[in-house]
Design a protein around this nucleic acid. Structure first.
Length: 358
DNA sequence: GACGCGTGGCT
DNA sequence: TAGCCAAGCGT
């Protein structure tokens, strides 16, 4: 593009990004997080593992109390491996993406049984463990073991897309990002570099209104040269989110106990506790009473519970019935007293339903 | 490669 | 407000 070479009109040609400059920025602005080791030291691989699983698609603020609670209750991988799955799901309740909790538990057992309670150090061995994908394998290898690895997460993708003005849209662009990331790695300090890039994305190179003037890579950034960093990363259009409807049956015993069951082990909210309900489907169910857990005199509450999942919105009507203290739970169901709710694995949508139990 | 899989905060 | 966004993985 000869026309763009005119120094009077062309943006300054970006210089290559310097990994050392980013590490120097990290040394000055490093955030203190509960799962982060003191400077110059390595973190316990179990803590890296636990935090990385929790942080998948989840914000630091949300994760923090869960991380602290898990670490207090299960201080090492063998302790977590010994725990019943139901306890892990109960502790995870509210954090979302419950397959993570099932896989976290399966992974702890695999590390205990197959690796003698020690996490393997290589990406390939980590990748073979349940719940550990390409990102998490690289993150543990780099952060816990100082292996040369590029944990390309959403932060890295945004930074890379801007640095190199990547014109391909996510998710197809992922293949490119991997290659670009490897070219950026410093000769050492792989753990710090991984976290530095995440911090850069989280604090300066943010999705909206990035603070380019403070960025150590400002002069290397193609999107900055275009004066349009927010354009990147390009993203494919997302599908619309449909609505599903259903009826939840709030069955209250005279002593306040609520009728509860456990969901199927896999799939949506797999293994979690719930109030019985009709199936959830677009348009709702023609004859909800046919799906009731027992015969009762129902009162329809006038305030539906609404909840938004990752791929659909839910609108639940509530049918309530009160039963005598002698009432027997139908097969596959159990009574749970309000004082026992915290020990149950109720996802957020069920917390909303149970708020109408009182 | 596309889709299924939660939740809460922010604009 | 409705949509966007946050340290992805399994199938």
């Amino acid at each position: 593009m000869p026309a763009a070479t005119n120094p009077a009109t062309a943006p300054a040609a970006p210089s290559p990004p310097d990994p050392t400059a980013l590490l120097a920025w990290y040394d000055r602005h490093r955030r203190h997080l509960p799962w982060r080791a003191a400077p110059g030291t390595r973190q316990d691989p179990y803590r890296v593992f636990l935090s990385e699983i929790m942080l998948q698609q989840t914000t630091v603020v949300t994760v923090r109390p869960y991380y602290e609670a898990f670490l207090r209750r299960w201080p090492d991988v063998t302790a977590l491996a010994r725990a019943p799955l139901e306890e892990v799901l109960s502790a995870w309740a509210g954090l979302g993406y419950y397959a993570r909790a099932r896989n976290l538990h399966a992974c702890a057992r695999a590390v205990t049984e197959r690796h003698g309670g020690h996490f393997p150090e290589g990406e390939a061995e980590l990748l073979a463990l349940p719940g550990i994908g390409p990102y998490t394998a690289a993150a543990i290898a780099a952060i816990a073991f100082e292996r040369r690895a590029a944990p390309v997460d959403g932060n890295w993708e945004r930074v890379l897309a801007r640095l190199f003005a990547v014109e391909e849209a996510l998710p197809k662009a992922r293949a490119q990002f991997r290659g670009l990331a490897l070219t950026l790695l410093p000769p050492a300090r792989y753990g710090d570099f991984a976290q530095a890039l995440m911090d850069l994305g989280a604090t300066l190179c943010t999705p909206r209104k990035p603070a380019c003037a403070l960025c150590p890579w400002e002069r290397a950034c193609a999107a900055r040269a275009e004066d349009n960093p927010e354009r990147y990363p390009l993203k494919a259009a997302k599908a619309a989110r449909p609505t599903r409807q259903g009826v939840a049956f709030l069955v209250i015993r005279a002593d306040g106990a609520v009728l509860v069951r456990t969901r199927a082990a896999r799939g949506l909210l797999g293994g979690m506790s719930e109030v019985p309900s009709t199936p959830w489907q677009p348009g709702g169910i023609a004859n909800p009473a046919a799906h009731a857990p027992l015969a009762a005199s129902w009162t329809a509450l006038n305030a539906p519970v609404t909840h938004v999942f990752s791929h659909f919105a839910l609108e639940l009507q509530l049918w309530r019935a009160e039963l005598p203290a002698s009432a027997v739970a139908p097969a596959g169901h159990r009574w749970v007293l309000p004082g026992e709710f915290d020990a149950e694995a109720f996802p957020s949508v069920m917390r909303k339903v149970l708020a109408h139990a009182g």
